[in-house]
């Protein structure tokens, strides 16, 4: 379980996160939604130790250490490998540094996404870059996967493929935290929603419970919360 406990962060006078708390369980997809860009990505960065914050974040009851990076991975929405590398070299890099690298899964995903080892990272389209990021991140045998805006700016077919991989490779027994402002592609795949606005949690709910008890979709709830 990832526990985010009362974290706050300012950039200068601007509040990015204000007392944000939530938990994300293993085996569940938790989605951080915010229509204004603020706070979602910063929350993921805080969990990964990529930005300082006030408050506390625990992963399976422990603070983040260097070994945690074998258990939790981050898939940002920008390429994280050097542009001059080929996909093959990026994979070698990953297997060099992570003991949790799973080459079979990497090959599976390479095939599924139709990526070619000899392609250079600088030459990939936006959609293929997202797929590469996903392939590299999901080929680690980790317990938690954090994804930042996996669908933004990507063509329809790539989005479908990525959503497919969600169901087939991503969730399994892992905990997933995903940020997005376009819920459409994955609405039916999410277990839990955290609605953020101006750096605070506005509402937190379980999607199936919401459907069962109130007959509302995630988009319905978003409409209520953000337009009131």
């Amino acid at each position: 379980m990832i526990e985010v406990k009362k974290i706050s962060k300012n950039y200068g006078r601007k509040k990015i996160l204000d007392d944000v708390s939530f938990t994300a369980n293993k085996g569940e997809v938790t989605c951080l939604i915010g229509i204004n860009g603020v706070g979602k990505t910063t929350t993921l960065k805080a969990i990964m130790g990529l930005t300082p914050y006030k408050g506390e974040i625990l992963i399976d009851d422990q603070k983040m250490t260097k070994d945690s990076y074998e258990k939790i991975t981050f898939i940002p929405d920008a390429p994280t490998m050097l542009p001059q590398m080929t996909i093959k070299q990026a994979m070698v890099f990953m297997s060099d540094f992570y003991t949790s690298w799973n080459p079979e899964r990497a090959n599976q995903l390479m095939g599924f996404f139709k990526l070619k080892e000899e392609n250079r990272i600088s030459e990939l389209s936006k959609g293929n870059t997202a797929k590469l990021n996903l392939m590299l991140g999901l080929s680690l045998d980790v317990d938690y996967v954090l994804m930042d805006e996996p669908f933004s700016g990507i063509d329809m077919f790539s989005r479908e493929q990525i959503a497919d991989v969600f169901a087939s490779h991503l969730i399994e027994d892992r905990g997933v935290i995903i940020t997005t402002h376009e819920i459409g592609d994955i609405e039916h795949l999410i277990d839990k929603v955290i609605l953020l606005d101006n750096g605070s949690v506005l509402k937190e709910f379980n999607t199936e419970e919401m459907r069962e008890e109130e007959g509302k979709s995630v988009v319905d709830v978003m409409r209520e919360v953000y337009q009131s």
Partner: peptide, 17 residues
């Protein structure tokens, strides 16, 4: 449940339920 999740493109938790 995992096969079902993949073939229907749903969350394995949902398949389980």
């Amino acid at each position: 449940r995992r096969e079902l999740a993949a073939s229907l493109n749903i969350n394995p938790n949902t398949a389980q339920k």
